[in-house]
């Protein structure tokens, strides 16, 4: 064994994650038909963000990583969001 603390995810848990991701995909496709006006993009990106978080936490195994990797991954993704949002707002309000 690699070490006693290594967490082995079950096959069924991966399958459940996939089902959740597929449901979210079909919701985002269906949501293009509903008209939220200016919020359509926001809804699409919100669903995409939930999907990305689901993949990172479950498939990329961050849920069972060390606190250091957890902190680094969430920190960098938060920084990424801040960079994108602030730069875009800077352009938009010019």
């Amino acid at each position: 064994m690699k070490n006693e603390e290594t967490h082995i995810s079950s096959y069924t848990s991966h399958a459940y994650v996939l089902i959740a991701l597929l449901i979210l995909t079909f919701i985002s496709v269906a949501a293009t038909g509903w008209h939220f006006g200016a919020f359509t993009v926001t809804v699409a990106l919100l669903i995409a963000s939930i999907k990305v978080a689901t993949v990172i936490i479950n498939f990329m195994h961050v849920k069972h990583e060390s606190l250091f990797i957890k902190a680094m991954v969430s920190g960098v993704f938060a920084l990424f969001a801040v960079v994108i949002i602030i730069t875009f707002i800077d352009y938009y309000l010019r």
Binding site: I8, S9, H14, L18, T32, F59
Partner: peptide, 28 residues
């Protein structure tokens, strides 16, 4: 084509699951 785009999304999501499962398999 939204249909092709959706199909490709499904391919990638399923492939993400199979690669995650392969780690479980090697661990076992």
């Amino acid at each position: 084509n939204t249909y092709i785009g959706t199909l490709n999304t499904v391919f990638l999501l399923v492939s993400s699951m199979t690669v995650a499962m392969s780690i479980t398999a090697i661990q076992k």
